[in-house]
């Protein structure tokens, strides 16, 4: 079941979309980067940690700000085209 529970601003959407894209990019880069490329590998590991933290931080911040409805075993998802937040359970 999918239910609209809120909406974020375009700026807020842009922030999470960029983090989402970066996280995907880092994950796919991780598949090809070898540990012997020390400099780049360390940069990647550090970035993955930072991006993950920022990603989680965005949802925490927004949930706090907007007080979206939640459900046990449910997910929130965002539609990048409409900036709407849905509760999927």
């Amino acid at each position: 079941m999918k239910k609209k529970v809120g909406q974020v601003t375009p700026e807020e959407k842009n922030e999470i979309q960029q983090l989402f894209e970066r996280r995907n990019g880092l994950n796919e880069l991780a598949k090809i980067l070898k540990a012997d490329n020390t400099e780049l590998y360390e940069k990647l590991v550090k970035d993955m940690g930072e991006t993950g933290t920022k990603f989680q931080g965005w949802w925490d911040r927004m949930a706090q700000k907007y007080q979206w409805e939640s459900a046990e075993n449910g997910n929130w998802e965002i539609n990048f085209d409409t900036n709407e937040i849905y509760l999927v359970s």
Partner: peptide
């Protein structure tokens, strides 16, 4: 909660 995205627009 796990957060996922949803978009199928161009």
């Amino acid at each position: 909660m796990t957060k996922i995205k949803d978009s199928n627009e161009p």
